[in-house]
């Protein structure tokens, strides 16, 4: 189980520039993995291919033991909704919705927003946002916005968290807070966390670091 990627290739543009040159990677359930490497090394591309958001040009990908090519579009979307959470460098909160509405947005896919409301409030309390439930994203600080975004990623109790430079826009205090959260969900809820970062200190907090250079995994 977990994530199993075999011989992943990715080309961009014409003539094809090969960004990923045959990646083999297995990530266990509950593992906290950081992917690091220089800008342009292909680390974000790998993350999005592992999350099924971006299709690989060649190679096989299994999520939870299921080959994603064998899944219908509807199954894939459902899988993404129920099993995956995304955290990006920028928070991408919907500006028209309050913090709590943003956190509950993924639950609207399955119309379970009322059932999950208590969990949303618990998550926001846990992240020190108990007095910010009804605030619009524009009224929150950068660190608060990112924590709301993480709460949104966790609302469906996903098995996988994909984080693309989640601390990239944060100061060190807020960055540390985010890392603590990842550390805790990985340890306590056995959530698999895959995080792209170029910060060596944060990369070192993961169970395992995968280094990418020139489209290949370097050990």
């Amino acid at each position: 189980m977990g994530i199993d990627a075999r011989n992943i290739h990715k080309f961009f543009g014409t003539p094809g520039q090969e960004v990923l040159k045959g990646i083999d990677l297995h990530i266990d359930e509950g593992e906290f993995v950081s992917i690091n490497g220089r800008s342009g090394s292909g680390k974000s591309t790998l993350l999005y291919i592992l999350s099924s958001l971006d299709p690989a040009s060649a190679g096989e990908l299994e999520l939870d033991g299921k080959n994603i090519h064998a899944m219908s579009d509807e199954q894939l979307h459902r899988f993404r909704n129920e099993k995956m959470g995304f955290v990006f460098q920028f928070h991408y909160l919907l500006p028209e919705l309050t913090a709590i509405e943003n956190v509950l947005m993924p639950t609207r896919k399955t119309k379970s927003e009322n059932a999950r409301r208590t969990r949303a409030i618990d998550l926001m309390n846990e992240f020190g946002l108990s007095d910010k439930l009804k605030r619009l994203p524009g009224e929150l600080s950068g660190g608060e916005q990112q924590r709301v975004a993480i709460a949104r990623a966790l609302i469906m109790e996903p098995s996988y968290i994909f984080a693309d430079e989640p601390t990239g826009n944060l100061d060190s205090i807020n960055g540390d807070l985010v890392m603590q959260i990842f550390r805790r969900i990985s340890r306590e809820q056995k959530t698999t966390v895959i995080m792209v970062t170029h910060d060596p200190d944060y990369a070192a907090l993961a169970d395992r670091s995968v280094h990418i250079a020139d489209g290949r995994i370097v050990v």
Partner: peptide, 16 residues
């Protein structure tokens, strides 16, 4: 556009 992207990552389909 960005919000469309985030909605898609949450599992909302293009149809949604």
């Amino acid at each position: 556009r960005k919000e469309v992207g985030i909605l898609r990552s949450m599992g909302f389909t293009g149809q949604d």
